[in-house]
Design a binder for these strands. Sequence first.
DNA 1: CGAAAGGGAACGTTTAACCC
DNA 2: GGGTTAAACGTTCCCTTTCG
Length: 709
Amino acid sequence: MYIEKYKEVYCKKIGTDSTNEILKRSYEILEETLDENRQPNKQTGLLVGKVQSGKTSNFLGIIATAFDKEYYDTVFLVGGIDNDLLRQNEERVNEVFDDISDDRGYMTCAVFSSASIKSEKNNLNQNRFFQGDNNKVIITILKNSRHFSDILDLINNNPLIWSKRKVLIIDDEGDQGSLDGNANTKKDGPTKWNETINNIRNSLTHFSYIAVTATPYANVLIDTYDNLSPKFIKLTYPGQGYSGLSVFHSDEGNERYVRIVPDEEAERLRDSDNQNDSEVQNIEKSLEEALSFFICSSIDLLMKKQKYTKSEMLLNIVRVKNDHKIIKKRLDKFLIELRKGIDDYFNDKKDIEKLWLFEFINKGFKILYDRKIDENGDYDFLERFKYAVQDVNSFIINSSPGAKRLNESSIKNKHVIYIGSDLLSRGVTISNLIVAYIIRDTLLGKNNADTILQRARWFGYRDKIINNMKIYTTEKIANHYFDIWIMENNLWEYLERIDLEGLSCEELIDKIFLELPTSELRPTRRNVADVREVAIKSWSIQRKYHETKNIELDYFEKISEEAKIEQFGTRTFRVKEYSNWNNFCSESHIDSYIINKVLAKREQVVFEGSWEEKPVKVVLMQPQSGANSMRSLGTDDKFTLHAQGANINVDYTDQNNYFGDSKIDLYDSNKGKVIIQIYKIDFKDKSKNEIAYGLYIPSLSVSGYVKNR
DNA sequence: CGAAAGGGAACGTTTAACCC
DNA sequence: GGGTTAAACGTTCCCTTTCG
């Protein structure tokens, strides 16, 4: 009955094949949530799909299947971090589940919202939908403390009822808010939302939990012992006509769809609030171009397809709400001038400001048609331009009192520009989006890959309008999307092994490696997941004083005699080579001292891969022994080991230069070898003849992040 | 050549945005 | 106005360069 209704709605939307595919997968996914007695297994699963690829359709299919097969009778749909997102989900839920009745005409499914739980709590448990076996309930829940605790109260209010319900918890955007934001901080206990979610789970007798997201980086990187660490992972593949990272942000995509905003212009736009309020500034050139393209492209669509009656543009510049106001002022001022310009042109005052007007139109026109507009030949276009400009309007989308909400019915204009940031970042669908002007960036520090990717509201089923789309952004952000594309490809390949080959999720998720070619991005918020960067830095050096054992001194003395002389640039060192790590260990017996001394808390040694098979070279770093020089120790017994840095002017292609203590690995004779530097140092406040180490492990060909535990 | 200064990244704290 | 999260801000720490 539920599957039938789902088919009824979705065959129309996405076709019979896609609908059947989703339902088939829904069944597979639900199987993962059941134990050997076909009861909910109280575990966490992860459902991953691309940004704007139809994840909602997928989990609605899961709900329909869960109800029809009687695996579950209750769904908690944790549907979003803000009201816009929740409402969008509620509308989609109601489309399928709002009006389902049995043979006798009785409703069999009720949809509640967490917003009404508190007021109805006392009689909700008496509601007939919570009684009997055949009644199904969906409760949509906002990610908000009060809403979460209302749900918890509801359950604790009547434990008898709830011990019988079989609850499927679906956590939409499950990487945001639900995970413990204190996991990697010094704060006591988990974050509020995470705590309450776990309390809800603990209060239920029969439940399973599915987190749904396009950016699962946090979910796969959290501690495996965390309740929310996934025990199974399923992928949902986008259907025909989907455009995402590979379309917009591959080499080719960048060329075709991305227009670069110069850094100075981005800077000025982000700095809008520093401008004098009484004097509204003009808009930047790149924004003018984006606006021109938006209008011209809208006209092009209207001429080609009668069906497209609306077009949308997104402006995501800064977070601060006051800045949205200023940006709107600047934009509106420009639009007024534009309207006046085109009106004057048609009111037989053709010469007035004509140059300026045509220059503006050509900015977008040239991109679309690769030629300038022809005043006579394109008269039709010009006329349409006049009407289009009259119907362009901008709206601020944020939580301010006067601001609009996305897709609000009061927005009746044909060509709509949304100005905002937080509420335009995650989950929301902007179906007629053709131009995005997105330069929001962290001013200091690194961006998070998941946050950046979730801002890509231009992804989706865009194949019919894609030739009319452009993304305006800075070079830095464009590069971020390219890098995230690489990370996504790798991650999906990895997750497919879990999904398709049936390999153990638990084992693979512990070894998860997120390839990020840049260290300007981290995969997710650092407070949520404890990760370390690998293969970017291959040197691990001793930073703290450790007492030296005799065995270390003995080895040093032994080597001093056996070692051969080698020249690194201008300097002479004594070195000894071994065929691999094991050979070195069996002769020296000091490997454990090296590892212990070198591996301070934040070390970044790469122990992955086959580095232990590589040749080992020991380098004695005190060529002039007996020098009258003593090191002093800082607080906490810290000291500097790599004293000799490279000169800034050193030419690293000339092997006759000394590159510096930390760049010994750059000499041809050291390539591909594990290098152990042994320093013999005297400390002012400690006994003499102390041994300290530096360790270099040849880097892997890729760089990225792994779990830190 | 050792040690300290200087610059930049990591880390811990505060702020802005959002909900009710 | 209180409660919460994510992001911006400001301080500390580490690495490289420069100074004596």
